[in-house]
Amino acid sequence: MLWLIEALIGFVLLVGGAVMVAGWIGPDWKIVPGWLSGNVWILPVAAGAVMLPFVIIEPLWRYAVHRWELSGDVVYARSGWLSREWVFVPVSRIQTVDKAQGWFERALGLATVEIRTASHAGSSTIKGLDYEVAARLAEELARRAQELRDDAT
């Protein structure tokens, strides 16, 4: 749901941007071929047509891909859609746990848990959790991280 809204907003921005570009390209531009400057309205429509399927598919796909799990004191998170990303972070190496809520997340009662380690490559962000779940996870992680803290870095 969250991704759907975000995708929709991105879509609107893109089409709006295309409209603006189209309005900006006057008929007297020499760089742009004549057939295009004559029919500038094509640009936003084309952008819209190309992007529309993605707007529908991407969020659903993302939702299907996203997983997270905490077991054996290791946080595992999977994300992405066309490209996938799996992140494994042992609780003992966690430096901070953040819980954040954006506008839309608040409206939908969702939250994001950000897990930070000393390295950007070992940090992970779990998006779109139910607020209570996120709060519980963040709490749990922070508590365990304190117990297991190991200062190798």
């Binding site: 490209s83 190496r93 870095t153």
Partner: peptide, 12 residues
């Protein structure tokens, strides 16, 4: 022991 996590990434 310096490893703090793994990121596995796969593009399409």
């Amino acid at each position: 022991r310096a490893v703090v996590g793994w990121t596995l990434r796969q593009t399409a």
